[in-house]
């Protein structure tokens, strides 16, 4: 198994809720990320899925140090980077880059492509000395499948897929080891998504990159991920290899998510057994006691409201499952198809 590159330990991000104008008093907190632990290994892709509001984008921001963690640790090659500032933070940031969702708004329209991709070199001139920058940017354009002669064009002269390639080139500029991709293809046309996914996979091989791939499309996440983590209301509820999560999920929430994935095959649509969750996702400012999913769970019992289930390998006959699931009653789902 490859060595860990990023270890996240009990990570917490709370946003305080205050009352009063002059004398602000904290009256609560939005618990966007509330105690998450996982490991990202060198060269692997960890997919993160969950409904909007589950905290997956906040998690990305905290890992990028765009937001300060309230508690917990983010170890990059064994060193806690969550408390760094100044030069030390700058040095670490070089190694963890991000690719954003919307290629239409994440690129400055007044900057040329060359300036956008080369901008990180202003902060980290050691990566590409001034005289070499134009060449470095042209190489990056080539790497992401764009014509190096486009260096002086502006973002509006490119299609959505091409803009996402520009965003990826910028993410690669500092030769990072980790790239956090937040919904990198969801704004793209279907016929272009496959091109960008293939590009990301190619780059991973060529540069030994580790990806955290945050997305809502469970089919794409499965395609690209080695392991997948499922988030619900600021918690990781299940994590495992793609096979463990997609074929042997033991957490009821994961099972509900998977049962609702639209499958591009109409032939079995009448046979599919969907799990219908009741109610809305609760507010992260006032999450349910015990297991956060219990208010929508068909398996919930008294114990679930009093005892927080820990993310751990289930002890009992959960169908022989050996991956972590945060449910007191973790068990594989029995479907008509499997029976």
């Amino acid at each position: 198994m490859a060595e860990p590159i990023l270890e996240v330990r009990d990570l917490v991000k709370h946003y305080p809720l205050t009352q009063g104008v002059l004398f602000k008093k904290q009256v609560g907190a939005v618990k966007a990320v509330d105690g998450i632990s996982f490991t990202l290994r060198k060269g692997e892709t960890l997919g993160i899925v969950g409904e909007s509001g589950c905290g997956k984008s906040t998690l990305a921001k905290v890992l990028m140090n765009l937001e300060r963690a309230t508690a917990g640790q983010v170890l990059y090659k064994g060193e806690d980077i969550s408390r760094l500032s100044g030069a030390a933070l700058k040095a670490v940031r070089r190694n963890i880059q991000m690719v954003f969702q919307d290629p239409y708004t994440s690129l400055n329209p007044r900057m040329t492509v060359g300036d956008i991709i080369g901008e990180p070199y202003e902060i980290h001139p050691e990566v590409a000395p001034k005289g070499d920058r134009r060449k470095a940017v042209q190489d990056l354009l080539d790497v992401v499948g764009l014509n190096p002669e486009y260096i002086n064009r502006y973002p509006h002269q490119f299609s959505g897929g091409q803009r996402q390639r520009i965003g990826i080139a910028r993410g690669l500029a500092l030769k990072p080891e980790v790239i956090i991709c937040d919904e990198p293809v969801s704004a793209l046309d279907v016929s272009v998504q496959a091109q960008v996914i293939n590009l990301l996979e190619q780059l991973q091989q060529d540069f030994e990159l580790s990806y955290m791939f945050i997305a809502h499309d469970l089919s794409i996440v499965r395609h690209i991920s080695d392991r997948v983590g499922v988030m619900y209301l600021g918690k990781m509820v299940e994590i495992g290899t793609d096979l463990e999560i997609y074929d042997h999920a033991t957490h009821p929430y994961t099972q509900a998510l998977l049962s609702a994935v639209p499958v591009p095959d109409p032939s079995d649509r009448e046979k599919r057994e969907r799990i219908i969750l009741s109610g809305d996702i609760p507010s992260p400012a006032n999450p349910p006691s015990g297991c956060r999913f219990r208010t929508r769970c068909w398996k919930a019992e008294e114990r679930c409201s009093t005892e927080l289930p820990l993310l751990a390998v289930p002890e009992l006959p959960a169908g022989g499952a050996r991956h972590e699931s945060a449910c007191h009653f973790a068990a594989e789902r029995e479907t008509a198809a499997a029976a």
């Binding site: 299609s159 091409q162 279907v190 496959a194 091109q195 293939n198 499965r222 395609h223 793609d242």
Partner: peptide, 24 residues
């Protein structure tokens, strides 16, 4: 046909996706 082939399929995991070339 190209659209249908370009969607990730669970039985072709790890392989390169078919991609329609060019742009809309």
């Amino acid at each position: 046909e190209g659209l249908l082939r370009s969607i990730p399929r669970l039985d072709q995991k790890g392989e390169e996706l078919y991609a329609i070339k060019g742009l809309p």
